[in-house]
Write a protein that binds this DNA or RNA. Structure first.
Lengths: 152, 152
DNA sequence: ATGACTGCAAATGTTTTGCAGGTTT
DNA sequence: AAACCTGCAAAACATTTGCAGTCAT
């Protein structure tokens, strides 16, 4: 559940990030940030662009792409690949760590975490001398309701 | 370790696949298949195209892409995303199941499997009512030798 | 005033598709 | 002959970049 307060916090994080780099807060960036934060889930650049255009038709596609890069740098957005051929971005701040259960039929995606798996991943990495910095785990299959339809 | 015998088996699988669909085995397809099977690892379409061109400069890029689709259908190749922005294909036949340890610095990739993780994945999926059909798990970090350089 | 930001259009890079000609059955 | 396959070039996408004008500081 996303609250206005949390959005405000993320907006502050973004402003601090660009200030640190000597960049600027603009009307367009505020709009894109607000819409991205309001929309939970996994947005493609094109979907975000569409939502932004609905609110402010003058914003260009390139600005959305540039903003996605900035939000990524600020650790507010993370790029993920959900296997549908599109690049997608999810919220990162306050969503430190999670994997995905993805329905191949309806596209429904559930975010999950399993501490036991996490620690086994670390264990396996260190067995090979690797130092982990990130990981992505996506489980594909059928969600309960699509499974039911399948069985008919 | 890949043997000539295994390649022959995979070639037969491919031939059976296209026969089942009424397609045909051609000189170009044989060349692309042979080169793909000989090359372990994670090939991008462009890399495969380059290797094919080295052996037979007349083969077109489109034929390589079409062949990747066929090998995928025949369960000989699997598309994976290793986070470098390129699409990549790895051998699927006889490599039923594995995850990746990927070095973010040198690109080195190790294939790993952990039965305990596999079963926890199943357990987590069923907790949410999901029926799994596939999954991808990629662990990103630094390999031992890049870690050593980093520490200097 | 300076330097960052914008939208647009052009460029880039990847993958797909239409097509005319060639090949296999 | 019918259906498939080929290479090429064009098209279709997704994303990035150059640029001239605009805006934030």
């Amino acid at each position: 559940m996303k609250t206005a307060a949390a959005d405000k916090k993320e907006r502050r994080i973004f402003e601090e990030h660009i200030a640190r780099r000597g960049y600027r807060m603009t009307r367009q960036r505020a709009i894109i940030l607000e819409i991205f934060l309001k929309k939970e889930g996994h947005l493609s650049p094109e979907e975000l662009y569409g939502l932004v255009r609905a609110k402010e038709p003058t914003v260009g596609r390139a600005t959305v792409y540039r903003m996605l890069r900035l939000m990524n740098e600020a650790d507010l957005a993370r790029k993920v690949d959900l296997g549908d051929g599109l690049s997608r971005y999810e919220h990162k701040y306050g969503h430190a760590h999670h994997d995905h259960l993805i329905c191949l039929r309806c596209g429904k995606t559930i975010e999950v975490v399993d501490e036991e798996i996490e620690s086994l991943q670390e264990k396996m990495a260190s067995k090979h001398g690797f130092t982990l910095t990130a990981h992505e785990m996506d489980l594909f299959g059928l969600c309960p309701s699509c499974k039911k339809k399948e069985d008919k």
